[in-house]
Design a protein around this nucleic acid. Sequence first.
DNA 1: TTGAAAGCGCTAACAT
DNA 2: ATGTTAGCGCTTTCAA
Lengths: 333, 333
Amino acid sequence: MPHAPSRRPTILDVARAAGVSKSLVSLALRGDAGVSESTRARITAAADQLGYRSNALARGLVQGRTMLLGVLLTDLANPYHTDVVAGIEESAGEAGFGVLLAHGRRDAKRLASQLDTLVQLNVDGVIAVSSWVDPADLQAAARRTPVVVVGRPEHPPAGIDTVANDDAAGAALAMTHLVGLGHREIAFVTTSRRPAAEGRRCGYETASHRAGLSPHTVAAESVEELPLRVAPLLRSGVSALIANNDLTAVALLDIAHDLGLPVPERLSVVGYDNSTLAALVRPRLTSIDQPRPELGRTAVRLLLQRSGGRTTDRHEVLNPRLVARGSTGPYGR
Amino acid sequence: MPHAPSRRPTILDVARAAGVSKSLVSLALRGDAGVSESTRARITAAADQLGYRSNALARGLVQGRTMLLGVLLTDLANPYHTDVVAGIEESAGEAGFGVLLAHGRRDAKRLASQLDTLVQLNVDGVIAVSSWVDPADLQAAARRTPVVVVGRPEHPPAGIDTVANDDAAGAALAMTHLVGLGHREIAFVTTSRRPAAEGRRCGYETASHRAGLSPHTVAAESVEELPLRVAPLLRSGVSALIANNDLTAVALLDIAHDLGLPVPERLSVVGYDNSTLAALVRPRLTSIDQPRPELGRTAVRLLLQRSGGRTTDRHEVLNPRLVARGSTGPYGR
DNA sequence: TTGAAAGCGCTAACAT
DNA sequence: ATGTTAGCGCTTTCAA
């Protein structure tokens, strides 16, 4: 029978119903050993009957911890984040922690307020899956609870651990792949100046020099601007493109299509992130895969180490791998 | 200077630092009128200096409310959910509420435990953006806090409000569009038996009959099974397909491509959800758009009405609209 | 094995 | 304008 949410039953209601003290109820419901079976049965029965649920606020207040981890997200829709969150949830669950998500978009102010919400809730740690949070805000939060950043913050502030994939190594993987296919004129195309994109660009340029090739980098302000910037490149004989991410890569596929350049016969394209998109578009996108769940699991591990007393900062870097699909092929077929 | 998160300063620490009582600190920090400017200044200074942040657990405990709304999600990666969440965050923010997300995948057990976490945290309401939550769990939650479901639960349980788009109307929009283009043999292709897909199927069948056409429905178990089920249909002269969602529609585009059937010249395809995917694939997908942010805003409105004392259940239905793109064209061109 | 009592950090009603 | 006091619901000594 749906009735208006009346006053929630408390431990005291259960105690009265079972005819015991409230401390005994607390002990019994948490499975303490020193409670006789008969009383425990009576107590659980009373609790069930009343529909009692413990109050996490009160518990958190008295225990000084909530057994909750907070995760701060920039972008829900990004499947990259989803997989990282999956890894976080897995490891957190194993360690007995619940996971609460807060969502701040690409807006430092929003993110700060969400971070604050989490901190005020006394979560036992915060994982920021975002490079958009203001370092000062992260540091303020880190004075109250362990903070780990997944990704590459502009300037990793002191007191904070980070986990990221090795962007430079990922770009180098793309280069090795393309050079192995016989390409010599390989360009890097980016629509972002954020640290992740910059890391990839650096890796690309280093790998170019190492392979004895001269790098061509196109940095567009937006996806819309790409056709204008990329067309000359393609006319100049570039046969392969490395994009800063899959979204850019898909835009490049589109441009190639519009120019009548078949992919991969005349042009090879490599994306970054191996998002679900990569497996959906035609041709399937060759892409660099970040170990996303592993990033999440590592973040939780770092968090627990912090709670455990570590005070030195750790910055973990995980290796990406290349997933070859249909958007790359041998040169000059 | 990053130091180990020591004991967080409390209102009492601030009070001592400012040389006042703790109630005055509470009043001052919350902007109560009856505090002299000079003391207020002293108090805020002390609070800033100590890096004081109020404890939401304690506040929630004493006030009996947290000013937080909980949102239960099935699938973070789905951009549909993202947009609904955006609407929720907008309306919640205007009403002074924070938003906490919990993520349970398509797993009733996980969802139940996440729902419990939110309820135990004493959130002031829960919005379940998911049709996968066990109705019994929803009802249990609804005994403690207002609950709104966005979407179409299998059997809407009593005591719970819902908001959904009108799936039947959406399918009818697709029919009108295709019939207007001259198509006569139009099939509905689904990979799901969930209420949303069923609603769309019903709408399609009703619209077919109304247009004097005979419906063809293909219900596949999975996307993988589609080619086998759809090929005969296409051979039999069907010239247009309505998919239960965009993912299915994209799979259909692929199948058409593999069969050498140009879209939209020889085959028209309509998706459902107008996801970001729809604007990325080639050809761009004509799709039915749900008013996603509006769904979220409506959910918050319903929630606030409940908190405000409404006890009767409300079930809002919002109208979708068709977004025409390149995957549909006139018959028999 | 059980109960009484203190207190987590805060707000709110009631003094002063 | 400021201080005192009594809880919110729970865990946690400490006694019985």
